[in-house]
Design a protein around this nucleic acid. Structure first.
Lengths: 172, 172
DNA sequence: GCGGAATAGTTGCGACTGCAACTAACCTGC
DNA sequence: GCAGGTTAGTTGCAGTCGCAACTATTCCGC
């Protein structure tokens, strides 16, 4: 069961990958449940609302939403289906490209976002942000970006707001 | 759409949380597909084999496996069902606690593990470990452990190998 | 040792997922 | 101005998930 010595020098990285998985899973699990309980909507839904509000013009294309919410195209379709059925978002086809579908907030979606934002951000801080210093956080983001770069996955992290320069984000 | 100033100081942390989500998702996605293609088994399955081999006595309890693989109890049950049906692992009830079920490798499970280990580790290095320095990796693990601690989720990261002191892990 | 609480694992069920196939719209070269 | 390829989004389908309810075993106070 021994592995080549050469592997030893990677074991720290593999530990880190595991830690990432666990934090992601555990923290999201806790946050998700707390949000669902307090705000009566799944955390997924709120993530969609955030992405819309943060996007230029307050609307996102389906493909962009798929990447931002870490889903496949069909996953995004169905997620938006649910939000639309609940009356929180609406689909609008753009006149420039009639294949594209933009997702925007409805009035009731905006109202829900406004109402739920503060408590949810509080949960996020309580469960995650309060325990990592800004320096640590920036370091982590930077180090992990290299990994995304190397896998040519950078598109997922940044250039996903293709049109205008982003206004002050809704969460910061 | 403005948030209280006080939030600004957490925005780095929220970025980090997003980066973590993206790395976890994107890297696992890539690794998972490459493994599935090259080795003809889902990456999930290999993770189970790793956890067994790394565990003391080369066997894990269902509950432990659930936490290690980031699943619910029922998720673990079904995952093991599949591996068992494929003849890679076997369930053994322990005489000390007749509620507990231990999962162990079969001969063919061990053979598969031995055969697939090196190529899969290579993929892991190629896609992740090679792009993070050991110092960075340790820093990340450490910082994220604080988050797990604060959420009383520490059990997930370490004391999950309750019995004997762990031998040299199978991956390092 | 007995009864109630806690723990380990499995199962039924509804919900969500990604893949692959599909439609519709756009784009490019000729 | 049309054929072939590409891109955006949706749908059928089979696979997986977590929750809640359930059985079986163990633990604990008395």
């Amino acid at each position: 069961m021994e592995l080549p010595q050469e592997l030893l020098k990677y074991s720290d990285a593999i530990d880190a990958l595991r830690a990432i998985g666990r934090v992601r899973w555990a923290v999201m699990d806790v946050i998700g449940k707390q949000v669902a309980e307090q705000e009566d909507i799944p955390f997924d839904w709120f993530e969609v609302l955030i992405e819309i509000v943060e996007a230029p013009n307050e609307r996102v294309k389906m493909t962009g939403l798929a990447r931002l919410t870490l889903r496949s195209k069909s996953g995004a379709t169905r997620l938006v289906d649910r939000l639309e059925k609940a009356g929180l978002v609406s689909r609008e086809t753009s006149p420039e490209d009639r294949r594209a579908v933009y997702v925007a907030l409805t009035d009731s979606g905006r109202a829900l976002f406004e109402r739920a934002r503060a408590p949810i951000v509080e949960i996020l801080i309580d469960r995650f942000a309060a325990h990592v210093s800004p320096k640590e956080a920036r370091f982590i983001t930077l180090a992990l970006s290299k990994v995304l770069d190397a896998n040519e996955l950078k598109p997922i992290v940044a250039p996903l707001r293709p049109e205008e320069p982003s206004p002050a984000g809704a969460l910061r």
